[in-house]
Design a protein around this nucleic acid. Structure first.
Lengths: 246, 246
DNA sequence: CGCTGTCTTGAAACTGCTCAACGCGTGTGG
DNA sequence: CCACACGCGTTGAGCAGTTTCAAGACAGCG
């Protein structure tokens, strides 16, 4: 934590690529959490995945809500690691691709043995899962304590930091892989409320949509200023090239 | 995930006890996340810890809210593992004991080497962190999608499953280690709202407080029925002796 | 060209939040 | 021994932000 020099997300080690099965994903594709009944592990190379769960409604025998409580628990970006056992049982957990990309897949038992014999792999797995846990802590805080605008700003900040690229005009451009519904389920918001908030951000000039599923942020600092979690997110990203504005 | 036979939480391996420093905790004590500047790892033996973060308020230069947005990210029970790197930076993260107990403490580098040479330790760490991640997923869903009563019911269900003991009258008794404020911060609720909800549960006869910091649940099934996450929580606990009501 | 699913927007209802007061147990000093 | 302050939990009344519900705009696609 304190003087960790490896805070910057290392790329997926080459050693891994040789051992795992390469899965090409397309939008909406579901990745089974086990292979032949054996637990699987995934390492994202490109694109993004999301883990979402759906719990049944039990409002004291009211038959009000139609299709359960859905929550997108986490969004996995390149470099992220996911083990099947991370998904809770009895919760309709699904790992779904939200964009085209490539994912490495292993059997957990094989991956574990591989890691045991290859310190670099073990270290990669440990550091990556730890970082993702820290990220999840921030996300938990966002869902539990932030208001609508702060949540959206936090999510956009995270996307910008992780997948953003400097645009010619000095802004920051990145993909918005999640649909409004998925984004809302990720942020613990209503899709309608989310849409309104996005519209407000767009109206205020902070955000624009050059095309569907893409976003352009003019002034990243102004966006980050809306999110109480921005400093923490920057720390996690190693505050690399993208955001060295100061 | 599918046919995992190791779902039941194994106790802390004896091998660990010999290698770590034993820290006796008292209520409110903060455990530094690093030792001499080196990252630490903790394994809870008895008692409970909580990880909480506090983010500054940034409501567009309003000086309205006094003391930041506080969130209790997770509560650690006996057997749980915590690595310093799990805490996000720049978020005033603290690991605090919420009850008297015993915690094993290691330097992460030493623990890692130890695990590398002792498969049982590696396996314990991997399985425990994976289970905690799955738990966190449920908690995220609770915060993001459940209403007030469902959140409280979910928390009580989890406590009952993890630390509950059969009471003579057939009920389930357990400790409530968190203060109202901490509990509210854990559930993403207002302390006032939480108090009201608890009062309602007490009034409905589901819950009673034999003494401060303790709770007694008459009908566990009725409580579980209030939480959409109950089946998932039971699966995580291995649905052991405590809850074999069926 | 019309269909369908996604996104947007409005107005009303509601849940949970804010704020302030009160009760209670505990520690402390007169 | 009592008065007082303090922390913590409880409760009420009013308010604000979100959700709900319903309608409309838009784009993708057969």
């Amino acid at each position: 934590m304190p003087s960790e020099t490896a805070a910057v997300a290392e790329p997926v080690p080459d050693v891994l690529a040789g051992h795992g099965a390469v899965v090409r994903t397309r939008r909406g594709q579901t990745l089974p959490l086990s292979i032949d009944g054996r637990e699987a592990v995934f390492v994202v190379r490109t694109g993004a995945l999301m883990l979402h769960v759906t719990l049944p409604h039990v409002t004291q025998s009211h038959v009000t809500q139609p299709q359960g409580l859905r929550q997108v628990v986490s969004v996995l970006h390149p470099g992220d690691v996911f083990r099947g056992a991370f998904a809770p049982q009895a919760a309709s957990a699904h790992l779904t691709a939200v964009s085209r990309g490539e994912v490495l897949r292993f059997r957990w038992s094989a991956f574990r043995d591989f890691a045991a014999s290859t310190p670099a792999v073990q270290r990669y797995y440990d550091d990556r899962t730890a970082e993702q846990t820290a990220r999840q802590a921030i996300h938990t805080t966002a869902i539990g304590r932030f208001d609508c605008q702060q949540r959206v700003a936090t999510f956009l900040t995270e996307l910008a930091l992780r997948t953003g690229a400097r645009a010619p005009n000095g802004g920051l451009a990145f993909e918005l892989p999640l649909s409004r519904t998925d984004m809302a389920d990720y942020l613990g918001l209503n899709a309608d409320t989310l849409s309104r908030t996005m519209s407000r951000l767009r109206a205020s000039g902070l955000l624009s949509h050059p095309e569907r599923h893409r976003a352009l942020v003019r002034d990243f600092e102004a966006l980050a200023a809306l999110s109480p979690a921005a400093p923490s997110l920057r720390a996690l990203c190693g505050d690399d090239a993208v955001c060295k504005t100061s």
